[in-house]
Structure formats: C-alpha cells, structure tokens
Amino acid sequence: MNAMPPKIAAERPARKRRRLAPVLPFVLVFLVFVLVALLAPVIAPYEPNVQNLLGRLKPPGTVIRGITYALGSDELGRDLLSRLIYGARMSLAAAVLSVMLSGAVGSVLGMAAGYARGWVEVVVMRIVDIFLSVPAVLLAIITVAVLGPGFINVVLVLALTRWPRYARVAYGQTLSVANMPYVRLARFMGAGRLRILFVHILPNIVGPLTVVATLEFGLMVLFEASLSFLGLGVQPPTASWGAMLSVGRNYVSSAWWIATFPGVCLFLLVLSVNLIGDSLRDILDPKSRTRRTR
C-alpha cells in the first residue's frame, strides 16, 4: 500500500531545502565557535589568566597601558575577550566528550533491552531506572563532591549520568519498532540479532536518538557551565563561561559586561546546536519526511 501522503506530513525536496536555509547561519555560528575553540592560542589577544590589577572592572573598549580591553575586564583585570575564547574550548570539549560517551553506551544498551526483552531488559532498564531516579545534576554534584572538581571528572560525571537518557529513548523506540511486520519478516528470513538491531531497527530509531543527542549536546554545554557556575566544575584560574557568569553575578549593577558576554556566548552556542539538531531531525527521521509505507 503506497498511498499519496497526506498533505500535512508531506515534504517535497524543494520545501526541505527551504527549511534548511534559515538554519545555515547557525551552522556558521557553531563552526565559528568550533574554530575559535581550536585556534584559541592563536586568536586570543592576550593570555587568559594574566592579571592586571590596574585594569580591574574596565568597561568594553578601555585601553590601559597599551592593553585594549575589547570586551572589558573582569575583577582581576583579565581580558574578558581572551577568557571567552578560551572558555569556548572548555564548553565544547566537555560537551563533545560526554555526548559521545553517553550516547554510544546508552543507545546500544537501550536497543539491546528493547529487542532482547527477558532478563536483558530487566537488568538494563532497572539500572536505567536507578540512574534516572537520581536527577543527573544531583548525581553529578554528589559525585563531584566526592571526587573533587576538575575537567576530567566533570566529563566522566556527565557521561556516567546521562547515558540512561539515550537508553530509555532507544528502548522505547525499539519496543515499538521491533513488532513491525518488516522486522518480523527479517527475523523469519533468518537475519541475525545484530543485523536486525543495526540494519533494521537502528535506522528507524536514529531520528529520535539524534534529537536526544543534539538536545543533550546543548544540555552538556549548560551542565558544564552550571557546575562551573556553582564552583564544582573547571577550577580557577582556568577560563570557563559558567565560572565567569558566577563572578559576573556579583557585579550585575557595576560591571554588567562580565555577566553579559559569557551568557551571550553560551546562549548562542546552545541555540545553534539546538537549531541544527532540529533540522537534522527533519532530515534524519523518515517519519517526518515521508509517510512510511507498511
């Protein structure tokens, strides 16, 4: 049965391109952040951690003894622009590493649970439940409180606390896909478990997983910033947007720029990631592109 798709779900290629167009500027924004992070030592005007007590809390554009504070200076006279540039490194590195770790672990376990059912399902989903039972931020906080703060610990903690999110989505999606006629047919025709999981099921659940991964990428950027904001993440003097915001909060009325620029950076980075993820969904999820024929 291959009926004409209903109007509301149809998406012709030309229209899809038009949907992609508004996202392109944000792809550019994201790439700029990536480049800035990669090239931080080259493009940063000054060392991010060098203090200049004569140049404390200077507004954007101030020039003192030949040092130009393009975006102002912080409470120790450090150049805000340079610290923002180095902060991009922290945010992106933490997010990339933790999403890759948690996504791979979570998806595989979730699919295995949803397809194998039986004891695999019970064990995996109980562990997922246990992890999801502790709000991730709290789990991260108690773990960091024990392990101590720092970049590596933050990445490990984020990855360890976030994999159940993928597992649950992969599990739920696999449950609904595993009983589809084409999967049953593949099984009757002698396809192996791995083949069914990765050839027949994965392509049909990769859309929701990608949406989760991109949402998670944005979330991981926010999590790293939150932990640093609370003083539990990357430690001073290393530049991190969250830690910069934490300082800026104390100077909201006297030095607005300290809390404003790191916030704008965080916002733009997370927004661009979310928008890219959203259009990825339209491309990757077959359900939203064309109507599935059964």
Binding site: A259, V270, L271, N274
Partner: peptide, 18 residues
Amino acid sequence: VLAAQSMPTFWSGILLIM
C-alpha cells in the same frame, strides 16, 4: 521555544534580576 531552551537558567535568572 529554542531560545528558551538555550538559555542557561543562571543567565536568564541574572537577566530577569537586571
């Protein structure tokens, strides 16, 4: 919606206070 989702809560909090 995406803007709301991309706002760090501590930053939207600071902006609200401002």
